[in-house]
């Protein structure tokens, strides 16, 4: 019997077919869009809802390469830089705080007993529900947006780090003590390096949420940013700008995820067991 190429749990699609299969849903979605757009444009050449690729390229080109007359900047570049600054600051803060807190909560029972219920409680607050509070207390500038991302992410990261610490075999802790490790050395030289890869994975998974919080905050109060732009041009039904922006955000997110994945393999070759003989 030959190995099936596609059906069943024993299927081995192989490289070429693998690529083709991966491309298939993308091509289908694209085809569907083009078809629908074409139908609408035949009815009404001025249709705004499903712009043609040419219209989108045109609009995106204007956003990317034409200077804004009032500010002298390129809108898309400016939006991207502002958004990324907020996003990365928020994520970096949440990751560092979550790492330190989770490490200590997981390793030291006293810290765990004190903080764990509180952090669990915090993690249940829907961050968007306290967005108004953030705007009121931190103003409508950068800080409130960064804070929203931070508050949205850090309880989750802290809890995940705590779990990662608890999952380390107890033998390791004992072993380190018999090698003369002090409690601080145990925390920062034995445990910390071992949960760093897990931190990267957690951040990867949290990026989607981080974008959500960022766009929400920018939509409500900002004067630049990718989310700000999308909600601004919505008033003119400018789908030819919104769609390229959404694609752009998706692409950035995808590249970030990829970068994190490669940095994980590169920086922690020991992680994930036997896959790199």
């Amino acid at each position: 019997m030959t190995t099936p190429r596609f059906l069943g749990i024993h299927a081995r699609p192989g490289k070429l077919l693998g690529w083709a299969l991966a491309a298939l849903p993308f091509l289908l979605a694209l085809g569907l869009y083009l078809w629908a757009s074409d139908i609408r444009h035949r009815d009404n050449p001025n249709d705004k809802l499903l712009p043609t690729p040419a219209q989108m390229v045109d609009a995106a080109g204007r956003m990317a390469f034409e200077q804004d007359r009032r500010t002298g900047t390129y809108p898309m570049a400016r939006d991207t830089i502002s958004s990324l600054k907020r996003l990365l600051t928020g994520v970096a803060l949440a990751a560092s705080a979550g790492l330190l807190l989770g490490l200590n909560m997981g390793l030291f029972p006293g810290m765990g007993a004190t903080l764990s219920p509180f952090v669990t409680f915090l993690s249940m607050i829907p961050p968007l529900a306290i967005l108004p509070i953030l705007f009121i207390s931190f103003g409508v500038d950068e800080l409130a947006k960064v804070m929203l991302i931070f508050i949205g992410l850090f309880p989750l990261i802290a809890r995940d780090m705590q779990l990662a610490v608890r999952k380390l075999p107890g033998e390791q802790i004992t072993k380190a003590l018999t090698l003369g490790a002090s409690q601080l050395e145990l925390a920062y030289r034995i445990v910390l390096p071992q949960i760093l890869p897990r931190l990267i994975e957690t951040v990867r998974l949290s990026l989607g949420a981080a974008w959500l919080f960022l766009i929400a905050a920018e939509a409500i109060a900002a004067d630049d940013g990718l989310g700000y732009r999308i909600f601004l041009v919505r008033r003119y039904l400018a789908m030819d700008i919104i769609l390229p922006y959404v694609l752009w955000i998706t692409l950035i997110g995808y590249l970030m995820d990829l970068a994190l994945r490669y940095s994980l393999q590169w920086a922690f070759p020991w992680y994930g067991g036997n896959d790199d003989e």
Partner: peptide, 19 residues
């Protein structure tokens, strides 16, 4: 008292630090 360098230990598994 608690584990320290006076006693060494080798377990069946997990004695080594993977990182």
């Amino acid at each position: 008292g608690p584990p320290n360098a006076r006693r060494g230990i080798v377990f069946q598994r997990y004695s080594l630090f993977p990182h």
